[in-house]
Design a protein around this nucleic acid. Structure first.
Lengths: 204, 204
DNA sequence: CGCGCAAGTGGCACTTGGTGTCAGATTAGG
DNA sequence: CCTAATCTGACACCAAGTGCCACTTGCGCG
């Protein structure tokens, strides 16, 4: 990792410990399941106290879902970088490109799938996951509002449309992801394209 | 309540106790907040043991969110009752009519709003709420699949569109609800109509 | 009517996630 | 090298659940 040379020793060790904890925990989760793996057993396996564990992660969930905070910022940045005159739906589709290529990457996909199975297995984790997705959507929606204003189509604050279309885009993503995990031969980008295109072909 | 005369005494007392617990708990939640209200304080105020509380509700969350299970079945029934030749989007809009009129009812709206504020205030509750919504959507999506097949447009199981459109409809509902709670003068049905109509007017 | 069984209840101990506190070790930086 | 900020482990503590057991209460049945 060459991207954190500028960080202090403390920060580097902190990240190293954090990564190690995620690694150890993930192994245990795969072996025994999320709920059955106690924080104590993780700390024991990693060789630090329970109290210190909660200094690295706010909660057991946070250890699994922490990366999604980063994802949110990444998506926001991607959308903000899109040209203002681009249609909203297209911009949202392009915004997803990062995560699509990331999950398509062979190196990460194995770990990712494991984690995904763990998340979808545990009700508590799944709930927390949906919560984070919801927060991300809220952030994206305000960017869409800005875009609309910038493109000469200002939206009243009583107009639910921006939140609605962002929610629709994420719904397409969720549907595509679920289908992709169920039928592992289907590539995610194709499914996402399909979902986001077919949505408009429904008759109403 | 005249609808449970046929139930046994045990079942009736059970429901009565359950309702009473919800009532007592809600009062405490409003006064002190959800997290700050312990199960012990609820059981103390209601006059039964903690152990029995968990025989009435699987969890503290369940006390607040239990009714959403009912809502899910209700929505499924509403959608299933819609004529098969009706466009999907229209059917989904009509499906929401029940919940719209229910929340518009002056009697329930006060309690409902309180509960909604409690749910949106507590992260844990909010997460569990989203989880339940997600499950409801999954159920609705299979019904949409059946409808499509029945209307002579069978969908392959690798087609993410049904989940996507259901998710889009629920996204509109969520956006409308949020706007409605923020601007209390705006009626929910109008906002929902607006969200579900405007969604298609976005250029792409 | 009363008897026996199923179901409901309370009390208690226990597990697990998570927090407050404090005293001691470690590190940064002048 | 010394001091102040930071990190750590240990311990006590709280709240949400669960398992277990003894006890009571309502229900069906002869």
């Amino acid at each position: 990792m060459a991207e954190d040379l500028h960080l202090s020793l403390r920060e580097r060790t902190r990240r190293a410990v954090q990564a190690e904890l995620v690694d150890v925990a993930q192994r245990l989760f795969v072996e025994h399941g999320y709920e059955a793996t106690t924080v104590d057993s993780i700390t024991e396996a990693a060789g630090l106290s329970k109290r210190s564990f909660f200094r690295y992660f706010a909660s057991k969930e946070d250890l699994v879902l922490g990366k999604y905070d980063l994802l949110g910022e990444q998506l926001q940045a991607s959308l903000a970088a899109r040209p203002a005159e681009e249609p909203v739906w297209t911009a949202l589709r392009r915004m997803f490109d990062d995560v699509v290529t990331y999950t398509g990457d062979r190196d990460n996909s194995a770990r990712m799938e494991e984690m995904e199975r763990i998340v979808s297995t545990s009700p508590a984790l799944n709930a927390a996951y949906l919560q984070r997705l919801d927060q991300i959507q809220t952030g994206i929606a305000t960017i869409v509002r800005n875009r609309e204003a910038q493109a000469g189509r200002p939206r009243a604050s009583t107009d639910p449309a921006p939140e609605a279309i962002v929610g629709a885009a994420f719904a397409c993503m969720a549907a595509a992801r679920r289908t992709a995990t169920q039928f592992s031969d289907q590539p995610l980008d194709g499914l996402l394209d399909r979902a986001m295109t077919e949505l408009w072909t429904f008759d109403r």
